[in-house]
Simulated assay, not measured.
Amino acid sequence: MSRGPSPTVRRRRLAARLRELRENANLTIDEVGEKLECSASKISRIETGHVGVTPRDVRDMLEVYGVSDEERDTLVQLAREARKKGWWHAFNEAFTGAFVGLEADASFLHTHQALLIPGLLQTEAYTRAVIRAIRPDIGEADVELRVRARLSRQKLLTEESNPPEYWAVLDQGVLERTVGGPEVMREQLKQLVELASLPHVTLQVVPFSAGAHAGMEAPFLILGFPEQADPDVVYVEYSTSGVYLEQPEDVQRYTLIFDHLRAAALKPDDTVEVIDRTANRLS
């Protein structure tokens, strides 16, 4: 997998720049749609990154905005690159939305989970048990497709030459819930110990003794990017879907929540000891 900007991140960057240029030209979405003889909803979907945009559409929009030839050529090329397919397109049935494309280009990933091991840290057997439990409606072939997709995602942490900084704060209940049986869970916990030894991976556990804590509402992931043109984004996960939060005040709120969680959690070294002891109890 490449660590260059993913097509998803390029599309997000292009969308933000197109919105900025329209606003600089003092044009509304309706006015642009009228000038280009297309619906205002199409312009809106392009500016939010919900749909791809062709190089021709970009060229037409930039002409309306009065953009210089140099920037026009740059943005048209960005549109071409944004239409390329990432490795995850081979798993379209398993991955939905922009999540994996954003994850692939992040410079840091900060996550909190209160119910299960985060996907990037799961063993194959744990993943299979989780998918079977949460998706009893799908067949074995679909289960295996999702398992392979998740294992491919994990290469981001284990096989990249420049992996993202990964920091996970887990509730103690994640360690105590025996998923897939004692042997599967023991293997999973031992893998957490191994991954925690990587220089770019940090694990912390919020113990039961901490009581109520800031992360009890829903699991979330904060994704940070190396380029200033790509602002941080928060992905909040719900039972059947997730939402992306990009407004600075939302990102700041979840950053504060994560800081509170880190403060309430055991130190990384103590966390590894707790994980190891929990694994040994399953022997």
Rank of each mutant, 00 (worst) to 15 (best):
S2C: 03
R3P: 05
G4C: 07
P7L: 12
R10W: 03
R11M: 07
A16N: 12
E20K: 11
A25T: 10
I29C: 04
E31D: 06
K35W: 04
C38P: 03
G52Q: 09
P55R: 03
V67T: 15
L75W: 02
L75V: 13
A82E: 00
R83P: 00
G86L: 11
A94S: 13
F95C: 09
A98Q: 09
F99K: 06
F99I: 14
F99V: 14
F99W: 12
D105S: 15
S107C: 09
T111A: 04
G119Y: 00
L120R: 04
Q122F: 00
Q122E: 02
E124A: 14
R128N: 08
V130Y: 15
R132N: 05
I134G: 15
I138F: 12
E140L: 15
L156F: 06
L157D: 10
E160N: 08
N162D: 13
P164K: 01
W167S: 01
D171G: 13
G173R: 02
G173K: 04
E176T: 09
E187L: 14
L189Y: 05
S197D: 12
V206D: 03
P207K: 07
G211A: 12
A214I: 01
F225L: 07
E227M: 04
Q228W: 11
P231N: 01
P231W: 12
Y235G: 00
Y235R: 10
E237I: 10
Y238W: 08
S239G: 01
Y244G: 08
E246L: 05
Q247W: 02
P248W: 07
Q252R: 13
A265Y: 07
K267E: 06
P268Y: 03
V272Y: 02
